[in-house]
């Protein structure tokens, strides 16, 4: 994989995390300049979204503009993508327009890797299918490290990833990222929301949030449960009531200082009880706020605007 791509977190290292986090901090404090003199001045960033997105698309665009980049944004609606242009053709076109970075969101795992083979631009994966969502994982580590007082504070802590691991690209990105930060990870899910080979990551599998606290979780990382998993075809969960009872994070789980994270958007009353989304133990607002700084840092590294080797 080329050094400047951000396609997945499988091989991310602690040094990579430190680089991104330091740069994100600089970005947040305005040290990378502004829209006219920013680190991305003269760079062209293309956002190619083959799947709907709100916070990811907005934070990439904001980050790119704040650092002075030209931004071209194409989405599934109102572009050739809607007319059925293929992923590869779109990427080749953007490449011909001399994009410095292409940020891609696609419904199929592996789309980012495939796109990278067809462009000289840096490729940033903004989420592909059930595959990877690396910038989400990086911003999660950033938010957690800000909350705990630095990356080193994550070392040895325990994070329980709760919910629909099976269908989640976020899970596939945060697991290796949290591990690279020195954290111990466990999965909390019914077998219907885990891969058949639930031991694929070699992690403990726990069967309720209560049990995750007994395991010693410092952080509960709740995943979004798509509504169709409960209603369509052969539902994987019997009811919201049962899911919330065993896999939902409630106020009582946060009583002893356990932190709550969620990549959004939250199904209140399902993954997280409605009254704790903005609880003082909840990092959910911090996660959203971290998106711009971390994505700015990622774009700066990807375009070569800031010269650092990174393997993520």
């Amino acid at each position: 994989m080329r050094a400047r791509d951000f396609i997945g977190t499988q091989d991310v290292t602690r040094e990579d995390l430190r680089t991104v986090l330091d740069l994100a901090q600089d970005f947040a404090k305005g040290r990378l300049g502004g829209p006219t003199d920013g680190a991305l001045s003269g760079k062209t960033v293309c956002l190619a979204f083959f799947e709907a997105s709100t916070r990811t698309a907005v934070s990439f665009e904001l980050a790119a503009r704040r650092a002075g980049a030209h931004v071209i944004s194409i989405s599934e609606k109102g572009s050739a993508i809607q007319k059925g242009e293929s992923l590869v053709d779109t990427v080749v076109t953007l490449d011909a327009l001399e994009a410095d970075a292409i940020v891609i969101r696609h419904p199929a795992a592996g789309a980012a890797r495939l796109a990278a083979r067809h462009t000289g631009a840096a490729l940033v994966n903004a989420g592909d299918g059930r595959g990877q969502h690396p910038t989400q994982a990086l911003l999660d580590v950033y938010a957690l490290s800000e909350a705990l007082g630095g990356l080193d504070e994550l070392d040895g802590r325990r994070v329980a990833v709760v919910g629909d691991v099976l269908h989640s690209r976020v899970a596939r990105s945060v697991i290796p990222t949290f591990q690279a930060a020195g954290m111990e990870v466990a999965l909390v899910a019914p077998r219907t929301l885990l891969p058949l080979e639930a031991h694929a990551w070699n992690l403990p599998v726990i069967s309720s949030v209560d049990d995750a606290l007994d395991w010693g979780a410092d952080v509960l990382y709740a995943l979004r449960l798509q509504k169709e998993r409960m209603t369509e075809g052969s539902p994987r969960v019997p009811s919201v009531a049962e899911y919330a009872r065993y896999y939902g994070v409630a106020r009582r789980h946060l009583a002893t200082g356990t932190l709550l994270m969620h990549p959004g958007p939250v199904n209140r009353g399902v993954e997280v009880s409605g009254d704790v989304v903005f609880d003082h133990s909840s990092l959910i607002p911090t996660q959203v706020a971290s998106g711009v700084a971390v994505r700015g840092a990622v774009l700066a590294l990807a375009t070569g605007a800031v010269g650092m080797e990174i393997a993520a």
Binding site: S234, V237, P238, E242
Partner: peptide, 9 residues
């Protein structure tokens, strides 16, 4: 033969 019951409850 459609929706699972609330087995844990």
């Amino acid at each position: 033969g459609e929706r699972l019951t609330e087995m844990r409850l």
